[in-house]
Simulated assay, not measured.
Amino acid sequence: MKRIAVYCGSATPADPVYIECARIVGRSFARRGIGLVYGGGKLGLMGAVADSCLEAGGEVIGVIPTALVNAEVAHRGLSELHVVETMHERKAAFTDLSDGFLTIPGGTGTMDELWEAMSWAQLGYHAKPVALWNVAGFYDGLLEFVVKMGDVGFLRPQHQGLLLHDTDLDAVLAKMAAFEPSVPIIHMKRDDL
């Protein structure tokens, strides 16, 4: 994978484990020669992942809507900064610019990005790995919910393993590199749906 989009929060939680996980991701990408694609902000985990990747000599591409640039949260020291008009354009750019999607801790916007990447993978709009690094058990409840969606029947058996995850970053990245796409909904027959 040449570039991975990282979804994460723009907040700085009190527990330093979250900022440190962002820094670990940035350094790891630079060390591995993986370009970072992210939301283009300078605050919170977003700023930490970008700064650590840049400091380690990595490529960092930010994609940010005009409204957030105008609010003065854009990171001006990136390899590239793409300014778009809408959040929809931002997420489409993440998909176009990256070879996969990694989610680390974040809030509502992070969840929006993760679920759209998952939904698009199910539908067949992309065939890229979608993963999350479950730092300090942050996503335990979400992972339980994904299992429940499958158990109840809202997540097809073919897609129950679509969300790659681990508590170890190296393991998550290895799973992403070994990813084999499942059959997307657009290629399923009516009886499979």
Results as ranks from 00 to 15, higher is better:
107 G>C: 10
63 V>R: 08
84 V>F: 09
83 V>M: 02
102 L>E: 01
145 F>V: 09
108 T>Y: 15
123 L>R: 06
132 L>W: 04
89 E>H: 14
73 V>W: 11
113 E>A: 06
60 V>L: 02
71 A>D: 14
121 A>W: 08
135 V>G: 07
70 N>F: 06
92 A>D: 10
69 V>N: 02
114 L>E: 10
125 Y>N: 06
68 L>Q: 00
137 G>L: 13
96 D>Q: 15
76 R>P: 11
81 L>Y: 02
72 E>F: 03
131 A>P: 06
80 E>W: 00
104 I>H: 11
137 G>N: 10
72 E>H: 09
122 Q>Y: 06
72 E>K: 10
60 V>M: 03
134 N>V: 11
130 V>G: 02
72 E>A: 09
150 G>S: 15
146 V>L: 13
152 V>F: 13
149 M>D: 05
108 T>N: 07
75 H>K: 04
107 G>R: 09
152 V>L: 14
136 A>H: 15
90 R>D: 10
148 K>T: 13
82 H>Q: 13
118 M>H: 01
81 L>H: 00
85 E>P: 04
141 G>E: 10
58 G>S: 05
85 E>L: 11
74 A>K: 00
102 L>H: 07
151 D>V: 06
61 I>Q: 12
89 E>L: 12
91 K>V: 03
156 R>N: 13
65 P>G: 08
90 R>L: 09
133 W>N: 05
108 T>C: 02
56 A>R: 08
58 G>E: 01
111 M>K: 07
82 H>V: 15
84 V>K: 05
62 G>Y: 08
145 F>E: 07
93 A>Q: 14
93 A>C: 05
137 G>P: 08
58 G>H: 00
62 G>P: 07
58 G>Y: 04
59 E>W: 03
101 F>I: 04
104 I>S: 12
102 L>V: 10
133 W>M: 05
89 E>T: 02
154 F>R: 08
104 I>R: 12
128 K>W: 09
121 A>E: 01
97 L>R: 03
90 R>M: 08
95 T>F: 11
77 G>R: 10
